[in-house]
């Protein structure tokens, strides 16, 4: 049984004028830990939300030109790492063996690609094209002896901690 309404039912896109603002602190350089912020930032942008990503410490690898194409995934210390089929866990004693990291990295990359989700550099392209803002951490740049030329072109600037805190006034924050 359907109920006909008088006025046309129109989706509410009024959130268009949202002042919601969200910022992600990306502190990890492992392949698997690069994705959560990228996926969520991309989703936030698709909702018209002002979105910032701040790369710090190990997360710096995500935006360092010479490293961003080659992030790794390691099963070491990850008890949720299973065999490709079934619920069989990979024993932690085997996780550090030679060959395990490349194998696990390839496996996770294939799974991500199968979903049509891009690799990290291309994902950053998408986020920048969608209007997202990328920032690099001053202390991390100094520790790694990196300058803006070493970083992914979409990074707007290297900023310090106070700049970031100031910039994210009123924003929702996620530390990853």
């Amino acid at each position: 049984m359907t109920t006909a309404t008088q006025a046309p039912l129109i989706p509410n896109f009024d959130g268009d004028e949202t002042d919601r603002k969200i910022a992600f602190i990306c502190s990890k350089g492992n392949l698997d830990m690069a994705y959560p912020a990228l996926v969520l930032a991309n989703a936030a942008l698709g909702e018209g939300i002002e979105t910032h990503l701040f790369f710090t410490f190990w997360g710096f690898d995500m935006i360092t030109k010479s490293r961003m194409h080659d992030l790794k995934f390691s099963p070491v210390g990850n008890t949720a790492m299973h065999m490709p089929v079934g619920d069989i866990r990979i024993p932690q004693a085997l996780a550090p063996l030679p060959g395990m990291q490349p194998m696990a990295t390839k496996m996770i990359k294939d799974q991500i690609a199968a979903l049509g989700v891009p690799e990290v550099p291309e994902f950053l392209d998408q986020i920048v094209a969608s209007g997202g803002h990328l920032w690099a951490c001053r202390m991390s740049a100094d520790m790694n002896k990196l300058v803006e030329e070493d970083l992914y072109d979409g990074v707007e600037a290297i900023i310090n901690a106070s700049d970031f805190i100031e910039m994210t006034d009123g924003a929702q924050l996620l530390f990853i």
Binding site: T2, T3, A4, T5, Q6, A7, P8, L9
Partner: peptide, 12 residues
């Protein structure tokens, strides 16, 4: 499931 009238037609 609601229906609404758009452009003079009932639309689901």
């Amino acid at each position: 499931m609601p229906a609404t009238t758009i452009n003079g037609r009932e639309i689901h």
